[in-house]
Structures are given as C-alpha cells and as structure tokens.
Design a protein around this nucleic acid. Structure first.
Lengths: 240, 240
DNA sequence: TGTACATCAGTGAACGCGCGTTCACTGATGTAC
DNA sequence: TGTACATCAGTGAACGCGCGTTCACTGATGTAC
C-alpha cells in the first residue's frame, strides 16, 4: 500500500477538495491494483489522511465506488458525443460512436469492468443508472438519425440497445478472455465489429417473417449488394 | 445459511461422492444468494459436513469455484452442439447456436456471470480456458461451415470471435443492465440480435476498403436485398 | 473364521488477518462583538 | 484592534465480524494373515 505524505489540512470551506482527491486516488488504485485493492484504508492512506476521513465525504464505501463509476460514465458520454460530431452522415456518425465506445473500453479496461461487470449490489444505484442512461441517450440519438435517413427501420431505442450490445460484446469479451485467439490486427477487428453491427442492424430491420434456410441464395445476393455499395461510393469519389 | 442434516460418512472408496455434492451445493448457493454467499463455511454446512472437509477434495476455495465454472462450461458446450445439429443449413445452424447460447445465459445469469464476468485472478485458470476453448470450437466450426458455403468470407476463427462477441454482448448487457428500456418482447429482441450478427457478418466480410458515408444509397440497396431474399425463400416454399 | 492393522473419510478448535465502521476527541480558523 | 466562540476538517484507537486455512486428532472399515 502506498502511503502518501500527510495531507495538509484544507482551509475552512475547502473541505470538498479532499472529496476530489479521494475520487482520483480510488480510481488510481483501481487501475493499478484491481478492485480488491480499493479499500477505505488504502484510499485514505494514499490520499494522506486517516481512514475515518473518508466518511466526511462519502456515506460508506459503496458511495465512494459509485462516485468513481459516475465520473467514468461522464467521461465516456463526452467521448461518444464528441466522436459523433465529426461526420454529418448519420450512418457514419453511428460508426464513429461505436468505435469511440470500444476504444474507450479497451483503453480503460478496469474502469469499463466497473461500469458493466460489477456484481449487482442492492441499494441506491439511481445515480449510476441515470449516468448510464445519459450515455445511452447518445446512442439512441444516433439510431434515430439513421431511422430518419431510412438506413434503419423500426424503434430507435430497440435498435440502439442492439447496437450497444454488439459493441459491449466486443469490448467485454476482449477484456474477459484475453487468451482467446484474437487477430493480430485488433484495430481492424474492432472496425469490422462496428461494421457488422451497423450493416447487420440495417439488414435485420428489413427482414420480416420467420427465418428460413437461405444459405444457397445468400452469397449471390450479398455479392451484388457489396458490388453496388462499392460502385456507389466510387461515384462519390468522382468530382461532380 | 442453510444447514443440512449431518451427512452420513461415505463408504471407503466413495470419497469422491462428497466432491460431487460440494460442487452441486456451491452452484446452488451461487444461484440463490450470489457470489459473495459462496463461502467454504456455507458450502460445507449445506452439504452437511465440517468446513475443513472441503480441503479433502479441493486445494482451496479458488479450486472449488473453478470446478463449478468448468461444469457450467460443459453444460453450455453440450447445449450449443445439440442446437446446431437441428438444421443442415449452415447459416441456419449458426443461428440456432447463437439462440441457444443467449437463452442459456439468460436462463442461468449467475452462472453466466461466473464464466464471463469474474474478476481476473492470477493463477491456474488453464482448465477453465480449455473448457471455454472447447465451447468456442463449436462456434468456429459453425463459422467454417458458413465460409465453405460461401455465406461468409474470411478466417473462420476471426468470424467466430465476432459472432460470439455479438451474442455475448446481448446476454451480458441484459444481465448487467436490466433497468435499461428493453423491449417487452425479449424473445423477438434476441432473435433480431442473432439475425443482426449473422447478416452483419455476411455483409461485413464482403466490404473492402475504408468505410464511406453511404446513407443516401443504403436504403435502396438494402430494400432490394430484403426483397430478393424474401422472394428466394418464397420460392423454397413452393412444391417443386 | 478371527483379529491386527493400515487406510480412508472425515472432525473440532483455533489462528490470524484485514476489513468496514464507530466514537469521542482535537486543534486550527474565520467571525461577531 | 483584541478576544471569545462556533464551526469546520479532520484524528486515534478500537470494535466486531466473517473469512480462508491449518493442525492434531478420531473412528469406521476393508484387507492380509
């Protein structure tokens, strides 16, 4: 356990400074040594204060951890929103959101685990749910834009859930099973995953009725689709 | 903590009976009361033996939990293999595998969490990795069959990873965020997710070059694809 | 067929640990008069 | 300008808990002779 030099006491009215410090230290500890290492004793020691001081700013340990999660949700939401603003094309903007999401998760695996893989603890998780919903709202907005453009058909919320699930699956499987035979070019794999989710959602939203065995006709139809898409984007490249 | 009546001592040579009992009880406890409730004391008490008896069959607590995970992996692998055997069409068989996977996860959320969302513990996880790889092998086989049929293009292992990730995302997001605005008809959502993964992988594996903004041409192309697929399966329905 | 004995399947009591949390207390500091 | 005082930002020591794990021991039972 790293013990910091004793923290100089905050001025009167500046008590909240310690709160920010505790949050920062707790996330550091989480990243460096894992969830089990985040104890009140360790957090307080590294922040340079005594253990009971934590109770001046958080009701209990769960509240501290929840606050860390809240801060991470905020970072993720901002990142997604920023990524989406890069392109005016709704389908492309959705793709950029997915990429940003996955890359954030892989860059911060321990934090991602905190957001998505924590064991369920009964109690006040309202604040975290609100933060997660806020983040989810950005995905719904992206899905809605694609529905408006005619790329997707159906309910934007349901579509967004499917898209999120696809990206989440990619991140969380990579985090949970790093020993699986992942391709050497991880970035290409991520790009493919996002493409799969986007194209898959677009096609799936048009399929009606029960699924049928179609393996004998699919290759021809799909080759034609890919050909037309390539031709269409080549045209876009030509000066008008 | 449930305390069972004292277990009658096994006959000589039948010591392994307790091992099976401990495994069964540990999984029960996990399902009924969560991961935190699986303590050696609780397991032993419910099995009707003293706590140190567990050490006669497992090196330590981690070994007990690992053995539970191993058993669950086995169930899942058998389920997937059985589901796939139902259809001769490779694309349809892959769909059935995905459905079976997701439904297993939703039917056994606590066990699924054990397999996929446990915190990483440094140490002997070789046996579990082997069990997971065995399970994964069934998915690779399904992807390979689709490549052979021309439905997918590319490396079956990489495709299988993407498909697994998509299904895993669906299960694990449902488990992790039950408060999200999930559709009322969950089964339809699951079917759509599997369709999305299958169709998405098929289309994605044909796309080459960098992604382009194509929102203005996608709807028309996709409508045509859906139309052709529907027509093709209607033909299948006609008596030849 | 009897009996000594090795082995197997457990038991009871205890150890030490680190954790979250509580409680009574301290001492600096801004403020009212 | 001095000073009493309320308040704020912490501290030190301790409590109780449940956990995984260890150790010396027990008693039934199959087997060799």
């Amino acid at each position: 356990m790293t013990v910091a030099p004793r923290r100089t006491r905050a001025r009167r009215g500046d008590g909240e400074l310690l709160r920010a410090d505790l949050l920062r230290v707790a996330e550091q500890l989480l990243v460096e040594a894992g969830e089990a290492a985040v104890t009140l004793r360790a957090v307080a020691a590294r922040a340079g204060v005594s253990t009971p001081s934590v109770y001046l700013h958080f009701a209990d340990k769960a509240a501290l951890v929840d606050a860390v999660a809240l801060s991470v949700w905020g970072q993720l939401a901002r990142l997604i929103a920023t990524a989406a603003a890069t392109s005016p094309d709704p389908f492309e903007a959705l793709r950029l959101r997915g990429l940003a999401y996955i890359r954030f998760g892989l860059a911060h695996p321990v934090q991602y685990r905190l957001l998505m893989m924590r064991s369920p603890v009964p109690g006040a998780e309202d604040a975290e749910l609100a933060a997660a919903s806020d983040c989810f709202g950005h995905v719904v907005a992206g899905a809605r834009a694609c529905v408006d453009a005619g790329v997707f058909l159906g309910d934007p919320t349901a579509l967004a859930l499917g898209l999120w699930a696809a990206c989440h699956g990619c991140v969380s499987l990579l985090i949970a099973k790093p020993q699986f035979p992942w391709p050497a070019d991880l970035d290409a794999f991520i790009e493919d995953t996002v493409r799969m989710a986007g194209m898959g959602t677009a096609v799936m939203s048009r399929l009606v009725g029960p699924p049928r065995p179609v393996s004998h006709v699919l290759p021809g139809q799909l080759d034609a689709l890919a050909h037309h898409l390539a031709a269409a984007s080549d045209q876009d490249q030509e000066p008008t």
